[in-house]
């Protein structure tokens, strides 16, 4: 206190609560702390169960590429699955980011409330995006496998024929099904609703004053988006993309349906065969003996750790960008 005239000190206000309120608070607090406990237990139990795998391979678990968990000399490691997860996620984000940003902008800036007087475009789109988030991954996977894949191989063939000099587009096998690219596209489609709904929310927080100010200066809609909406929403967009990345890294079923497991590290996204941590767990579950299970749990632990870090950082960015804009 700098006020020299005041010598009074605040009294301590007693906040006695009734027994009922204490019980209620205890219950709610218990639930809140329960989330900590669950998160902690996930890490702890995966670690315990993964010990045999780590003991067998040591640090080579992070550098080995094969997955041989049975026999006298088991060698296995998470490296090729990890790179596979990352490649799929990068492709997925490359597909998802432009479409998601465009959709979020469309819903916020372009969509008329009603078309022809009765079609509620905006509400319909918002609902459709939410529905896409609820569609089971198994259905995305089936669609990718049975419908998208036959339509993609043509493009892949073309890319590898004409752009094959770029290493990423090279295909030494001549087989284009079950490739990283198809997995990536499907995973990207699955990430779209998350990124879209978050971006839409961030965009809608753009202060109306700034928007109208820019418009009254004669800025076109595109200008307003570039100069008002985007700068304002930057943090939130980055955060939402990271949340999408978390989802992409962890997608198991859709990838498991499409990919055919191959363990060498592979950067050729058009070529058949690949790997990802989540798909590896889904596909190899129940095979490979007890050491195999332990190895899969160890891989699960790695996935858990990576997504945990990404999500923590992402939620911080999102929260910060939403908070300090007010």
């Amino acid at each position: 206190m700098t006020n020299t005239t005041t010598t009074v000190t605040p009294i301590k206000i007693s906040s006695k609560r009734s027994a009922e309120d204490r019980a209620f608070r205890g219950l709610a607090r218990g639930a809140g702390l329960g989330t900590f406990v669950i998160l902690f237990l996930i890490g702890l139990f995966l670690l315990i169960e993964a010990i045999p795998a780590f003991r067998s391979q040591g640090l080579r678990f992070f550098t080995n590429t094969g997955w041989q968990t049975t026999g006298p000399h088991p060698t296995f490691g998470v490296l090729s699955a990890l790179t596979g997860s990352i490649i799929i996620s990068i492709i997925g984000l490359a597909v998802a980011i432009p479409v998601s940003l465009a959709t979020a902008l469309f819903i916020n800036e372009y969509a008329p409330a009603k078309v022809l007087g009765f079609v509620p475009v905006k509400n319909f789109l918002t609902a459709a995006v939410d529905l896409m988030a609820a569609v089971p991954s198994i259905i995305y996977g089936m669609w990718g496998f049975f419908v998208l894949q036959p339509h993609t191989t043509g493009l892949e063939q073309w890319l590898s024929t004409y752009l094959g000099f770029i290493p990423v587009f090279k295909s030494s096998t001549g087989l284009y099904t079950s490739s990283f690219l198809i997995c990536g596209i499907i995973v990207g489609i699955m990430c779209m609703p998350i990124i879209t709904s978050l971006c839409r929310e961030v965009f809608s927080l753009t202060p109306n004053g700034e928007r109208e100010g820019a418009m009254s200066l004669g800025a076109s809609r595109a200008r307003v988006i570039r100069d008002v909406v985007f700068p304002f929403a930057k943090g939130g967009v980055i955060g939402s993309i990271m949340l999408g990345l978390g989802r992409a890294l962890g997608e198991a079923i859709a990838v498991a349906i499409i990919i055919s497991l191959a363990f060498p590290i592979n950067f050729h996204i058009l070529q058949a065969g690949g790997n990802s941590i989540a798909a590896l767990i889904a596909l190899n579950w129940g095979s490979g003996g007890s050491l195999g299970t332990s190895a899969l749990l160890a891989a699960g632990l790695v996935l858990f750790a990576i997504t945990l870090i990404i999500n923590m950082v992402a939620s911080r960015i999102v929260n910060a960008s939403m908070a300090d804009r007010r």
Partner: peptide
């Protein structure tokens, strides 16, 4: 923050966790 992190935890991790516990 923990709830956000949990919501981003891959479903398969929830599976392997319940398996182990």
């Amino acid at each position: 923050v923990v709830v956000t992190a949990m919501s981003g935890t891959p479903a398969i991790v929830a599976g392997v966790f319940i398996y182990s516990i």
